[in-house]
C-alpha cells in the first residue's frame, strides 16, 4: 500500500473527519441536558448515536466494495482513505454518544467492540505503512519460495557432507533436515522465531562435537558447520518474512470478526433502547 491513502486528495477525509469530531465536541460542550448529565437519550445523544450507527454500516460496506476492485465511480483508494478517517472519527462521535456512562451491559459492550475494531484497524494501517519496507529489507531480493528452495538445497548439501561422518553427526543432520519447519501456529508465525528449531539444535550439538575432533574429520565438520550456519541464517530470514506477513494479516482476523460481533451488539443495543423505551 502506498502512503497516498493517508494523504489522499490533500487529506480530504482527514479534514472531513476532524470537522465531524469538532462539531460533535462543540455541540456536546454546548448542550445542557436535563439533570445535567449527558447521555444517549438526549437529542444530542440520539443524534450522535444515529450518525455513529450509519457510519458503522457505511464503513462495513467497504468490505463489500473492496472485493469489486476497479468498479464504481469512486476509486478504491478514496474509499479506503474515507474508511480510515471516518472510522477514526467514530472514537469521538461514539464516546460523546455514551455521555461517558459505562456499565456491564449491551450498550458498553457495543462501544468496547467498536473501539477494538477501530484499534485493530489502526494497527492494520500501521502495518501497511511500515511492514512492506521491513519486508523488502529482510528479503534482500529473495521471495519466500526462493528462500525455502535454498533451505531445501542446504539440507541436501548438509546431508551429503555428513554422509561420511559419524553416526551422531549424521543423525543430527538428518533430524535437522526432517524436523525443521517454518511458521506453524498463529503464535509461532507471529513470533518470527522457533525456540525448538531442529536445525539450530543440530548446529549446536555438531559444534559441541566438533570441539572433540581433529584432522580430516575436523575439516569436514567445519564445512558442515558452515553449511548449517547458512541454513540457520536462511531460516531466520524466512521466519522474519513469515512474521511480517502474518503481522500484516493478523489484524484482519480481529478486525473482521469483531466487526460482525459489533453489528450484533449494535443491533441489540438499538433494539434494547427502544424495546425498553
Amino acid at each position: 500500500m502506498h502512503e497516498s491513502v493517508v494523504v489522499y486528495n490533500r487529506f480530504r477525509f482527514l479534514k472531513a473527519a476532524t470537522l465531524l469530531g469538532l462539531v460533535a465536541i462543540v455541540l456536546y460542550a454546548w448542550h445542557d441536558p436535563a439533570g445535567g448529565l449527558p447521555n444517549g437519550g438526549t437529542w444530542l445523544g440520539y443524534g450522535l448515536g444515529t450518525i455513529g450507527a450509519l457510519l458503522i454500516l457505511w464503513l462495513m460496506w467497504f468490505g463489500v466494495r473492496k472485493r469489486s476492485y476497479g468498479e464504481g465511480h469512486v476509486k478504491l483508494e478514496a474509499w479506503l482513505s474515507a474508511h480510515i478517517y471516518l472510522g477514526l472519527s467514530l472514537i469521538v462521535v461514539a464516546t460523546l454518544h455514551t455521555g461517558f456512562q459505562f456499565g456491564w451491559n449491551v450498550h458498553t459492550l457495543a462501544y468496547v467492540l467498536m473501539m477494538l475494531v477501530i484499534a485493530s484497524g489502526a494497527f492494520g494501517l500501521y502495518a501497511y505503512l511500515r511492514y512492506p519496507r521491513l519486508m523488502t529489507e529482510n528479503r534482500r531480493g529473495l521471495t519466500l519460495t526462493m528462500m525455502m528452495q535454498q533451505i531445501a538445497d542446504a539440507d541436501r548439501d548438509c546431508r551429503e557432507s555428513s554422509m561420511q561422518l559419524g553416526e551422531e553427526i549424521n543423525r543430527a543432520v538428518l533430524q535437522a533436515s526432517q524436523d525443521t519447519r517454518l511458521g506453524g501456529s498463529m503464535w509461532r508465525q507471529l513470533a518470527g522465531r522457533d525456540p525448538n528449531c531442529a536445525t539450530l539444535a543440530a548446529l549446536r550439538s555438531i559444534e559441541r562435537l566438533a570441539e572433540k575432533t581433529s584432522g580430516a574429520e575436523a575439516s569436514a565438520l567445519r564445512r558442515l558447520v558452515t553449511l548449517m550456519t547458512k541454513k540457520v541464517d536462511l531460516l531466520r530470514q524466512a521466519r522474519r518474512d513469515i512474521q511480517l506477513s502474518a503481522l500484516m494479516q493478523i489484524w484482519l482476523y480481529v478486525h473482521v470478526p469483531l466487526t460482525f460481533a459489533l453489528i450484533a451488539a449494535l443491533v441489540a443495543h438499538v433494539i434494547a433502547v427502544f424495546f425498553y423505551w
Partner: peptide, 9 residues
C-alpha cells in the same frame, strides 16, 4: 519442508 511448514494465517 512445505508439508511441515504453515506459512500463512
Amino acid at each position: 519442508l512445505r508439508t511441515r511448514s504453515r506459512i500463512s494465517l
